[in-house]
Amino acid sequence: MTRLFGVDDGFSEDAILGRLEGMKDVIEQVNKQFKDPDLTTFVCVCIPEFLSLYETERLVQELTKFEIDTHNILINQVLFDEDAVESKLLKARMRMQQKYLDQFYMLYDDFHITKLPLLPEEVCGVEALKSFSCHFISPYQPSIHEGTVEELERRVSTLREQLKGAEAELERLRKGKHKA
C-alpha cells in the first residue's frame, strides 16, 4: 500500500496527474477567456480618495500585465453640487475629492470613467440596485442647480427642519431648567 500526500492508494499518482492535467485545461480556457476583451472586461470600482486611487493604479497595472482588459472605472460616493452645499466640512470634502477626481482623469484619460453620487442610504435590494444602475450607463446629473426654484425650496425645507430641531432643543432645555 503506497501513500502519497497521506492519502490511501485509491488516489494513485496517475489519478492525481490526470486530475492536474484536467485542471490545466480548465485554467488555460479561463485564462484565454479572461484575455479576450470581447468576452471579459474588468470594471474598477473606487472612491475619490488617495488610497483608492493608489490601489486602483496597482490593480490596473496587474490586470495589464496579465493582458486583461480594463478600460472602465466607476468612482463611487462622489459629492456633487458644491454651490448648493453650505457646510464648510462638506465643501472641504468636495475640494479633496475633486483633487483625486482630477488625478483619475489625468491617469486614465483613455478610460471610460463614471462618477456615482454619494447617497443618503445604502443601495440594498434588487429594486434599489436597478434604480441606481442607470447611472452606470448615463452620467449622474444633480437634479438641483443653484438659483432655481427647486434649489431654493430645498434650502427652505432644510432650514425649516433645522428650525424645528432647534425649537425642540430649546423646549427641552427650558423644561430641564424649570425642573432644577
Rank of each mutant, 00 (worst) to 15 (best):
T2Y: 06
T2N: 05
F5A: 13
G6A: 11
V7Y: 03
S12E: 14
E13T: 10
D14Q: 13
A15G: 07
A15L: 07
I16T: 05
I16P: 08
G22Q: 01
K24Q: 14
E28Y: 12
V30K: 14
V30M: 13
N31C: 10
K32V: 04
K32M: 06
Q33N: 15
F34D: 10
D36C: 13
D36E: 08
P37E: 11
V43K: 14
C44V: 04
I47S: 02
I47M: 02
I47T: 08
L51G: 00
L51F: 04
L53V: 12
L53A: 13
T56L: 01
T56V: 13
T56D: 13
E57W: 06
R58Q: 13
V60K: 04
V60Q: 09
T64N: 07
K65G: 09
I68V: 03
D69Y: 11
D69E: 03
D69R: 07
N72K: 15
I73S: 10
I75L: 11
I75R: 09
N76S: 08
Q77F: 00
Q77R: 10
V78F: 08
F80Q: 01
D81I: 09
D83Q: 00
E86Y: 15
S87F: 03
K88N: 01
L90E: 02
L90Q: 06
L90W: 12
K91D: 00
K91L: 01
A92E: 11
A92N: 14
A92D: 11
R93E: 04
R93H: 06
M94D: 07
M94S: 15
M96N: 02
Q97G: 00
Q97L: 03
K99S: 06
K99L: 03
Y100S: 04
L101Y: 00
D102Y: 05
Q103F: 04
Y105H: 07
M106L: 13
M106A: 15
L107I: 00
D110R: 02
D110G: 08
F111S: 15
F111R: 11
T114F: 02
P120S: 10
E121M: 03
E122S: 10
V126M: 03
A128K: 05
A128S: 05
F132T: 01
C134K: 09
H135Q: 12
H135G: 11
H145F: 14
G147S: 10
T148W: 06
T148E: 10
V149G: 10
V149Y: 03
R155W: 15
S157G: 12
T158W: 14
L159Q: 08
R160E: 06
R160P: 00
Q162V: 14
K164V: 05
E167N: 10
A168Q: 07
A168K: 02
A168N: 08
H178D: 07
K179A: 09
